[in-house]
Lab assay of single mutants.
Amino acid sequence: DTINITLPDGKTLTLTVTPEFTVKELAEEIARRLGLSPEDIKDTHNGKTLDPSLTLAEYGITPGSTITLEIK
């Protein structure tokens, strides 16, 4: 299953994830792909900052969802 990550420059990154991924694991994968530190990444969905300890499923993030990435 894939989700879309909207980057600060407007580009989109597509990642393969499972509903059990935590937001922290997602940030780590994004950081790895972009050459950043996971601590520099802030993920938001529907205007809410995502708690790193919760899973994508707990936020109702499903395949095809879009998450907005902010760099701290």
Results as ranks from 00 to 15, higher is better:
residue 56 L to R: 00
residue 52 P to A: 14
residue 19 P to H: 06
residue 15 L to Q: 02
residue 3 I to T: 01
residue 67 I to Y: 04
residue 12 T to H: 09
residue 70 E to C: 08
residue 61 I to K: 01
residue 24 K to G: 15
residue 2 T to E: 08
residue 6 T to P: 02
residue 16 T to H: 13
residue 11 K to W: 12
residue 21 F to S: 12
residue 33 R to H: 14
residue 51 D to P: 05
residue 65 S to Q: 08
residue 30 I to M: 05
residue 45 H to P: 04
residue 62 T to I: 13
residue 18 T to I: 04
residue 42 K to R: 11
residue 20 E to P: 03
residue 47 G to W: 07
residue 17 V to Q: 01
residue 52 P to M: 14
residue 28 E to C: 07
residue 60 G to S: 03
residue 51 D to L: 04
residue 70 E to G: 08
residue 58 E to N: 04
residue 57 A to Y: 14
residue 12 T to R: 08
residue 62 T to Q: 11
residue 26 L to R: 00
residue 16 T to R: 10
residue 35 G to I: 01
residue 14 T to P: 03
residue 5 I to K: 00
residue 56 L to P: 01
residue 65 S to P: 01
residue 1 D to E: 09
residue 14 T to K: 11
residue 8 P to L: 10
residue 51 D to C: 06
residue 66 T to M: 06
residue 5 I to Y: 01
residue 29 E to H: 08
residue 13 L to N: 01
residue 23 V to N: 01
residue 24 K to A: 13
residue 43 D to V: 15
residue 7 L to A: 04
residue 57 A to N: 06
residue 14 T to R: 09
residue 18 T to V: 06
residue 62 T to Y: 14
residue 48 K to P: 09
residue 47 G to A: 02
residue 57 A to Q: 10
residue 17 V to M: 07
residue 45 H to I: 15
residue 61 I to H: 02
residue 26 L to P: 00
residue 66 T to Y: 06
residue 25 E to H: 08
residue 42 K to I: 15
residue 54 L to I: 07
residue 22 T to W: 01
residue 71 I to G: 05
residue 15 L to C: 05
residue 65 S to N: 06
residue 62 T to D: 05
residue 13 L to P: 00
residue 12 T to Q: 09
residue 67 I to Q: 01
residue 23 V to H: 01
residue 49 T to H: 14
residue 46 N to A: 07
residue 5 I to T: 01
residue 42 K to P: 14
residue 23 V to W: 14
residue 43 D to H: 15
residue 52 P to C: 11
residue 66 T to K: 05
residue 31 A to W: 08
residue 14 T to C: 08
residue 54 L to W: 09
residue 36 L to E: 05
residue 6 T to Y: 12
residue 65 S to I: 09
residue 50 L to P: 06
residue 20 E to L: 12
residue 43 D to K: 14
residue 55 T to K: 06
residue 35 G to A: 04
residue 3 I to M: 03
residue 54 L to H: 08
residue 67 I to V: 11
residue 33 R to S: 07
residue 25 E to S: 05
residue 41 I to T: 02
residue 60 G to D: 04
residue 10 G to H: 05
